[in-house]
Design a binder for these strands. Structure first.
Length: 425
RNA sequence: GACCCCAUCGUCUAGCCUGGUUAGGACACAAGCUUUUCAAGCUUGCAGCGCGGGUUCAAAUCCCGCUGGGGUCGCCA
């Protein structure tokens, strides 16, 4: 029976590296028909906090990584103490005050890592290992070994940073007379500067990405690509397809640098291919948070707006920024826009356009375009002469979707009002 | 510093195991097409096997060394 676990410590938010470790564990379990255990390593009473635990569970769910079993080490202290006692009786460990310490055997050991192959260590270089601390709580390595053994974990898939913990833990298994699991050490994810991933080099918490408007499918897909490849030049792959193709042996051995640019590109791909209704639903909380939308809103109108921006919003937040004019009553112009409007010299022509548009009864893409084209022709202008200043007036921006689609969305009343602008005021 | 691990375009990677490829794809970048702007899309371009030795008819691929990078060295996890 294949059984793996992800063992986060609730001393901080779930970060991107942890999320990837969880993802690979989950994938391995699913690919092998095994099960996935979530084990909360909250032995550090000082630093473990419930809010972090809540956040980790939420992030896991958001990413779509369901677990079969959940444990908390803080509820298992008796078990660790019991095993430590046994080691003392067997003469493999000794007391130092309240603490229990393992006498480190001296030997050459070989570890076969599923990703790296054979790794050898000399435990003579290791110091005796603390198993139970003076406060009677277990140390990481001890709790980890006891739990992995008791929970029947068959494969330990974890970050590279644990590779040097492995020989110590192997010695604990040996002292306990228990069979160790198979190991696979994942290379770490690094920041854009090649160093450790940190807040300085970008967002590290999964919730930060959520807040920044990334969708879970894209994040998971990107994380998958960091250290693994489905082959056949495929970039976009969902969890279901990944399960079919996943092989732990194909995981890269070298660390990978996190690229926000590529994640953003993937996010844009997912957003473009979503159905507009589903995308709209995702957008609603972002819009409400900004006060752009109240509890009650016109879903149809919103969905139409979303469609117009679907290929123009790499992240959900981008929609809020780029389509803000649809939700605001009045828009503020930047100095740049004010200047460009003044330089366009189209005040008179725009007032002609405005007057003609105001006579329209049906304010649609087709009708506004017809009027616009007529006015341009009558005044002997190029379309571009009016398109740009009108867009600025309606949206407060120099860029955006097609002007007539925009007009139809903004609606007659607001369009007429925004076209009434004192260029030299 | 000691110990362990790693090394293909700027970045993520395919290829390596089972030597023979014009070393493939993607992001980014550049150009073009399209166009009312911006995106999207399509086309094209730029760019890589860290270095040095072997082994071999032949090395990105196998071996050794160097260099470079990463990780660990807590009664944190």
């Amino acid at each position: 029976m294949i059984k793996v676990r992800f063992a986060p410590s609730p001393t901080g938010y779930l970060h991107i590296g942890g999320a990837r470790t969880a993802l690979f564990n989950w994938l391995y379990a699913r690919a092998q028909g095994g099960s996935f255990v979530l084990r909360i390593e909250d032995t550090d009473q000082e630093r473990s906090k419930d809010i972090y635990l809540e956040e980790i569970l939420q992030s896991m769910k958001w990413l779509g990584l369901q677990w079969e079993e959940l444990y908390k080490q803080s509820e298992r202290f008796d078990i660790y103490l019991e095993y430590a006692q046994k080691l003392i009786q067997d003469g493999r460990a000794y007391r130092d005050g309240e603490a229990v310490i393992l006498s480190m055997p001296q030997q050459e050991i070989k570890l076969y890592d599923l990703i790296r192959g054979e790794i050898s260590f000399d435990t003579a270089l290791l110091k005796d290992e603390v198993l139970i601390k003076s406060d009677k709580s277990p140390t990481y390595s001890f709790a980890c070994v006891v739990d992995d053994a008791l929970m029947g974990i068959s494969h330990v898939i974890r970050g590279d940073d644990h590779i040097s913990n492995t020989p110590k833990q192997l010695m604990i298994y040996q002292a306990l007379g228990l069979k160790p699991p198979k190991y696979a050490h994942l290379p770490l994810i690094m920041g854009e500067d090649g160093g450790r991933l940190s807040k300085r080099t970008g967002a590290v918490a999964v919730t930060d990405y959520k807040r920044q408007g990334f969708i879970p499918e894209a994040l998971v897909n990107y994380l998958l690509l960091l250290g693994w490849s489905p082959g056949n030049n495929q970039e976009k792959i969902d969890l279901k397809a990944a399960i079919k193709k996943f092989s732990i042996k194909q995981v890269q051995k070298s660390p990978a640098i996190f690229s926000l640019e590529k994640l953003t590109w993937l996010n844009a791909q997912y957003i473009k291919q979503m159905d507009a209704g589903g995308l709209t639903e995702l957008l609603v909380p972002f819009l409400q948070e900004r006060g752009f939308l109240s509890e009650v809103y016109d879903g149809k109108m919103l969905e139409n707006s979303v469609k117009l921006y679907q290929s123009r919003m790499p992240t959900l937040v981008d929609f809020c920024d780029r389509a803000d004019f649809l939700f605001k009553d009045r828009i503020d112009f930047s100095d740049e826009i004010v200047l460009k409007l003044k330089e366009s010299g189209q005040e008179q022509n725009i007032s002609v356009l405005r007057e003609r548009l105001s006579r329209l009864s049906e304010f649609s893409l087709e009708s506004t375009e017809k009027i616009f084209r007529d006015v341009v022709a009558e005044l002997g202008l190029e379309s571009a002469d009016l398109v740009h200043p009108v867009r600025m007036l309606l949206t407060g921006k120099t860029i955006g979707p097609g002007l007539f689609e925009t007009m139809a969305l903004v609606g007659k009343e607001k369009t007429i009002r925004r076209l009434n602008y004192q260029f030299n005021a």
